[in-house]
Simulated assay, not measured.
Amino acid sequence: MAERPAVPVQMLRSIDAILSALPECRQEDAWVGLRWRVGSATVAHVFGGEDQLFRITFRAELDEMMAFEHLGPPYFRGSWGRNVVGLLLDDGTDWEELAELLTDSYCLQAPARLVEQVPRPG
């Protein structure tokens, strides 16, 4: 079995900069890679695959799931949970779009008192 690669430091820094700016969102080790949580809810999980590609998973509104599935690569549906979306991370990753998706994921997972503190476009 091939070993899973470590996620590049710069990629981790970029993801952490997005998520650590959200109230009470913290990074921790996961079974593979790293995850960010608010309370006991996972907001995002980043990891390297045996195929040497890097992925991040996050939560999305159920009505958006079909759109992500139809977009195809670099998006994929997580094989666990009803609303888990994944994204392959590479040199073409749109970090502004990812920041919006991760903020949405946080807002789905966080308690309302914390979501109220997050500035979001109308």
Rank of each mutant, 00 (worst) to 15 (best):
M1Y: 10
M1K: 11
A2D: 14
A2G: 06
E3C: 08
E3Q: 15
R4L: 14
R4K: 15
A6C: 09
A6H: 11
A6D: 11
V7Q: 01
P8I: 04
M11N: 08
M11Y: 13
L12S: 07
L12K: 05
L12Q: 10
R13L: 15
R13W: 09
R13M: 12
R13E: 15
S14V: 12
S14P: 06
I15W: 00
D16W: 03
A17R: 15
A17T: 08
I18M: 04
S20I: 07
A21G: 09
L22N: 00
L22E: 00
P23N: 04
C25K: 00
C25R: 01
R26S: 12
R26C: 11
Q27D: 07
Q27C: 12
Q27F: 08
V32E: 08
V32R: 12
G33K: 01
L34T: 06
L34D: 04
R35P: 04
R37M: 12
V38Y: 06
V38P: 05
V38R: 00
V38T: 06
S40G: 11
A41H: 10
T42F: 00
A44V: 03
A44W: 02
H45G: 03
F47P: 01
F47H: 03
F47C: 05
G48E: 04
G48I: 02
G49E: 03
E50N: 10
L53K: 11
F54Q: 02
R55L: 04
R55S: 10
I56P: 03
I56L: 08
F58K: 00
F58R: 00
F58A: 03
R59G: 01
R59F: 05
R59D: 09
A60G: 07
L62R: 13
L62G: 05
M66A: 15
A67I: 09
F68K: 01
F68I: 02
E69R: 14
E69C: 12
H70L: 14
G72R: 06
Y75C: 04
Y75R: 05
F76S: 07
F76G: 07
R77E: 08
G78M: 03
G78C: 02
S79I: 15
W80H: 13
W80E: 07
G81Y: 06
G81L: 07
R82K: 14
R82M: 12
R82P: 08
L88S: 10
L89Y: 00
L89E: 00
D90F: 07
D91A: 15
G92S: 14
T93Y: 05
D94L: 05
E96I: 08
E96W: 11
L98V: 06
L98H: 07
E100Q: 12
L101E: 03
L101R: 07
L101K: 04
L102A: 05
T103V: 06
T103G: 04
T103F: 03
T103H: 03
D104P: 02
D104R: 06
S105H: 10
Y106Q: 02
C107W: 01
L108Q: 09
Q109V: 09
A110R: 00
P111W: 10
A112E: 11
A112K: 15
A112Y: 15
A112F: 14
L114C: 09
E116K: 15
E116C: 13
V118D: 01
P119Q: 12
P121T: 10
P121Q: 13
P121S: 15
G122S: 15
G122K: 15
G122A: 14
G122W: 11
